[in-house]
Design a protein around this nucleic acid. Structure first.
Length: 511
RNA sequence: GCGCUAGUAGCUCAGGGGUAGAGCACUCGGCUUUUAACCGAUUGGUCGCGCGUUCGAUUCGCGCCUGGCGCACCA
């Protein structure tokens, strides 16, 4: 049900319920009570009380007066018992009507499930063992007009939503009634804050770079376009933070990072949201080997901090972060899984495509045959098709073909390859890293190649960022760079099946 | 973008070419130390939207909308 329904259609069941609550609201106001007051001071949260009084015996009553506040989730015995929830948990309120102020007894039926209330009373444990507050005062803190969704599981009725669409579209409802989304988002916050702790400790500086850009570079992806009215120019939403962070290295910062939202104008799936969060970091005087160590240590640190252990279960699969992570050259692992040896034909696309086709890999892009693919693209295709899904345990794939890595430095000993790695876990690419290309002339050449592709209609080719090339010409120190997809890492560490579960408000088509 | 699948009361779901069903919620009454409180009664629907077939469509057909899953693209 949407608010529109309640506003426009006065004949639905939901509007009938809303009207009943509006009548209660009016009655509350007519008693001189503000149903939406400004502030409430509580002495305890629910969980604090549960801990503090865990040893209180059944039927025991204390002299301790406390105040609590939260949302009513359930009520029993005609408002004799109220289940009150705050963000720490539940506490039961007990309204002993025989000994309660008559005004309060009359006021209680004006409440509804979903209302926020504040209550004052003494702590007791009921004869059946439920810690309760025997209330002397109850005030409304926010009158709720719409009913919260409830579900019945077996014999238990409780707040909840089954409908997945409602959960994502009205996430506030999901968060009110389901414990898991709240836990997942808490863990996500923990993950990003621990990443910051880890990097800040190591002397990295977090710097924000522009989201609105004249050219969206640093990755292969289609950008979103927007318009700046005063300048009367189209701008792109960034698809990576790479090129600006590298400018900061040129500028003299030696360790920088950014945790930021990036935007890619692509399809939506359980693993893709149009806006997602990456962390990119750059460290001067380092190479991709250093980045591999950093990645492994960082992810292990995060996993330990968030889950308290290094073995996790993801959708039925055990993933072990503890053992040293494998580091395998891309060509070797292709040889292992696809029985193709590309090492002798890194400069011979005809031979490479013959090997791929013989092995049964279709060289197609969007269903159409590839036009003159170069070696790098062929190798990447074979890798994606034959290897990627098998990389369940954390694995570094190292030394990528040059053509698919226009921002990475050429391999120091193997012609045709670059110093690049990607980290795979559960068959997903989690991280991407290079010994950053710092040679301004080589970089210019490679971006000009990309520009040609772009001109030929490849929407995802890298644009030519002339200022970035100028920056490199002033001199960039040897630098290791790393990018990690935060959302997928959070999915793994929270056992979430869909990226929508780790994003508070995932992109949905409007109704 | 393609394929499969779903949409019926506030919630969870059943049904099926002939007046639209259940449980829970809501409202009312009873009861009063409950935790699914309990007992009773009432209320509640454009069966996602549109077109077609039909005497008659919520049901059958086609199209559309929205979601889910898978594929493709990608991270």
């Amino acid at each position: 049900m949407t608010l529109q329904d309640t506003n426009i259609d006065t004949h639905t069941e939901s509007s009938r319920i809303r009207n009943q609550r509006l009548e209660k609201l009016e009655k509350i106001k007519s008693l001189g009570i503000d149903p939406y007051p400004y502030k409430f001071i509580r002495t305890h949260k629910a969980e604090e009380l549960q801990v503090k009084y865990k040893d209180l015996a059944n039927s025991q009553e204390t002299d301790d007066t406390v105040t609590v506040c939260g949302r009513i989730h359930n009520e029993r015995n005609d408002w004799m018992f109220i289940d009150l929830y705050d963000d720490s948990g539940k506490i039961q309120l007990y309204c002993d009507k025989e000994n309660l102020d008559k005004k309060l007894v009359e006021f209680l039926p004006l409440l509804d499930k979903g209302d926020h209330i504040g209550a004052k009373g003494i702590i007791r444990r009921s004869p059946r063992g439920e810690l309760s507050i025997k209330v002397s005062e109850v005030i409304v803190l926010s009158k709720s007009l719409l009913p919260l969704p409830e579900i019945i599981e077996g014999k238990k009725r409780h707040l909840g939503i089954h409908d997945i669409e409602t959960r994502y579209r009205q996430r506030y409802l999901d968060l009110i009634v389901n414990p898991i989304p709240k836990e997942t988002l808490k863990k996500r916050a923990k993950i990003t804050s621990e990443i910051r702790n880890y990097l800040d400790e190591k002397g990295f500086l977090e710097i924000d770079t522009p989201v609105l850009q004249v050219e969206a570079g640093g990755a292969e992806a289609r950008p979103f376009v927007t318009h700046h009215n005063a300048l009367n120019i189209d701008l792109y939403l960034r698809i990576a933070t790479e090129l600006h962070l590298k400018r900061l290295i040129v500028g003299g910062f030696e360790k920088v990072y950014e945790i930021g939202r990036i935007f890619r104008n692509e399809g939506i799936s359980t693993k893709h949201n149009p806006e997602f969060t990456s962390i990119e970091l750059y460290e001067a005087y380092s190479d991709y080997n250093d980045m591999m160590d950093l990645t492994e240590n960082l992810v292990k640190y995060i996993c330990q901090k968030v889950n308290g252990k290094l073995q996790i279960e993801y959708q039925g699969k055990i993933i072990d972060f503890e053992k040293p992570w494998k580091r395998i050259p891309m060509l070797d692992i292709i040889k292992e899984h696809a029985k193709i040896d590309f090492s002798k034909c890194l400069h011979n696309p005809e031979e490479a495509s013959k090997l791929a086709i013989n092995a049964g890999v279709k060289l197609e892009c969007r269903g159409a045959p590839m036009v003159c693919p170069d070696c790098g693209i062929i190798i990447a295709k074979v890798f994606e098709e034959r290897v990627e899904a098998k990389l369940i345990q954390p694995t570094f794939i190292i030394d990528y073909p040059l053509e698919i890595s226009p921002l990475a430095k050429k391999h120091r000993s193997i012609p045709g390859l670059v110093e690049r790695f990607e980290l795979f876990i559960n068959g997903w690419e989690i991280a991407n890293s290079f010994s950053e290309l710092t040679d301004p002339l080589d970089q210019r050449k490679r971006l000009e190649e990309q520009a040609k592709k772009k001109a030929a209609g490849d929407h995802e080719a890298h644009p030519l960022d002339l200022d970035f090339l100028t920056a490199l010409e002033y001199g960039m120190p040897p630098t290791g760079g790393l990018g990690i997809g935060i959302d997928r890492l959070v999915m793994l560490l929270t056992n979430s099946a869909s990226i929508r579960d780790v994003i508070a408000f995932p992109t949905m088509k409007p109704l």
